[in-house]
């Protein structure tokens, strides 16, 4: 069976844990429990008839206090960068992390999720910016860990890229 490691990276509180929990366990909580270190989840996904085990590394958020250890990225088959649509600065963090990851891991399949799409009225990242990034060949997907919007699709799309289909 194919096993693939995925890492989720992004600023703190953007919803990495929430996205994973929504995808793996179909649950969502409004309460914020910050992740210390790494939380590993395992799930399997069917990619066009092929079962793929996903080992999902939900990393702690990047900020001034905790920096993501590059060693954690070892062995990853794909990366998910997460930004919080209601906090403009988190997009810069995500893009920055992407550069760091690329310089140490080379180019891997990845996605950029702009989370909390359900809070449209507080949105700070406009369509233009996202369109711009898409123009650079980045898959930018607005998601909501709360409503589940595009969550499953995003993980499966990455899995598809990882197995090369």
């Amino acid at each position: 069976m194919t096993k693939k490691k995925i890492c989720l990276l992004g600023a703190f509180a953007v919803g990495k844990t929430s996205l994973v929990q929504q995808y793996v366990n179909s649950i969502f909580s409004d309460k914020y429990h910050t992740t210390v270190g790494v939380k590993i989840e395992k799930t399997s996904v069917d990619v066009d008839g092929e079962a793929v085990d996903l080992i999902i590394w939900d990393l702690h958020g990047e900020d001034d206090f905790q920096h993501v250890r590059l060693s954690y990225l070892k062995g990853s088959a794909g990366l998910i960068f997460v930004a919080d649509g209601t906090r403009h600065s988190t997009l810069a963090t995500a893009l920055n992390l992407r550069q760091i990851a690329e310089s140490s891991m080379g180019s891997l399949p990845f996605m950029l999720l702009v989370n909390k799409a359900d809070l449209a009225d507080q949105w700070e990242i406009d369509d233009e910016v996202m369109e711009d990034l898409r123009g650079q060949g980045i898959s930018v997907i607005p998601t909501s860990a709360k409503t589940g919007q595009s969550v499953e699709w995003a993980f499966e799309e990455l899995a598809r890229k990882m197995v090369g289909k």
Binding site: A13, Y32, H33, T34, V36, D64, F65
Partner: peptide, 9 residues
């Protein structure tokens, strides 16, 4: 960490 992150937020 929880407090630090909440504070930062």
């Amino acid at each position: 960490l929880q407090v630090v992150n909440e504070m930062s937020l």
